[in-house]
Design a protein around this nucleic acid. Structure first.
Lengths: 192, 192
DNA sequence: ATTTTTTATTGACCGTGGTCAATTTTTGAT
DNA sequence: ATCAAAAATTGACCACGGTCAATAAAAAAT
């Protein structure tokens, strides 16, 4: 009982994603409407949902691609060993995450797997972010009383916290980079 | 040009919130439908939106109340001075935050003020959480090389991280409390 | 009291995400 | 080539949050 995939399926799917990417390029992620995507792609609405569970599933795919590209960039830098170089290396990733509030919210919501064995593109990206940071930290000038894995989880937590505060009217005084720098210095190289 | 508020307004608003609370008590937050709330309250749909900007605004009010009650509980404990007692004191708060995935997501989304001078009930609660933890940390057995304010922001960040991972299929092995304990020990009382 | 102005309520209507039985297209067997 | 089974597509339809011009009720002015 194999379910053969027709080549037209792949074509339709590609057309949908292409159309969606065009819409996003023009108006951003938040303004994307399924109706506009299917019209641009020249298919019926039902077709969209035959290809993607829901609108968020398409968002996950598109944002996952962008995130992976940003992570490629991050990994292409010379291996950072200090707090400030780590932050600099992650700049493309964080930049995209903060590009739109809608993007940030959606990324956070899907950063963990939603169901059992149901790990989506965004959760995968967060896992990759984590692994990259672990790798960097393993031979960086940081505290060694705690495993690199935990340090990396902390980096992620602090990055999200700094991004959150960036969107927050109350704490908009300090810049994202300055705040993250202070957090990570205290976390990775404690003085007491 | 004062806009006088009629007493019937307050009554209608109270009826709406009461109705909403009943619905939530029965089916949880996620299942709440505006239609059901207005039916229970015996008003028209338009009235709902004359009282609350949108459905989320009502959610914010209800969750804010619950959160404040949890924070009252937290503050009623004998002032915690160690990592484990801090975690224990915050248990009611974290418990509510993790009670439903929908609740967690919404809280995170509104944890920062959404607009300038537009600080809502949930953001206020997060501010209170922060203040309470600062107060505790000020005379707790923790590192002093970093201001208590930053330590408290870290506590919040790690708590959110631990809650996120709790909802995540990948990392469900470690319990929330154990994970948060490890985080906070490393953050508040570093050994190197 | 009567009129005017302000405030609150109403419900028909809209936008948008999502569903599903019916239809069309493709595939594979004969 | 023909036909039956499987897969993909369609579009009318639904659910639900949210809007707004019309109406009703209350408060203020006369």
């Amino acid at each position: 009982m194999q379910k053969t995939v027709q080549k037209r399926t792949l074509k339709t799917r590609a057309r949908l994603i292409e159309a969606a990417e065009g819409v996003v390029a023009q108006n951003g992620y938040e303004a994307l409407r399924v109706e506009q995507v299917v019209q641009t792609a020249g298919v019926a609405k039902g077709t969209f949902f035959a290809h993607f569970r829901d609108k968020d599933a398409l968002m996950e795919i598109m944002m996952g691609q962008r995130l992976n590209a940003c992570l490629d960039q991050a990994e292409a830098t010379t291996r950072p060993t200090t707090v400030s170089t780590i932050i600099a290396a992650l700049e493309p990733v964080h930049g995209f995450m903060m590009s739109e509030r809608y993007v940030f919210d959606l990324l956070i919501r899907y950063s963990g797997a939603t169901g059992i064995a149901e790990i989506g593109p965004i959760a995968t990206c967060f896992e990759r972010y984590f692994r990259v940071v672990v790798m960097w930290l393993e031979d960086a000038q940081v505290r060694k009383d705690v495993p690199a894995e935990m340090l990396a989880e902390g980096v992620q937590a602090f990055a999200i916290q700094a991004m959150s505060l960036k969107f927050c009217a109350l704490h908009s005084a300090t810049s994202f980079t300055d705040r993250l720098d202070a957090y990570l210095t205290a976390w990775l190289t404690p003085a007491a």
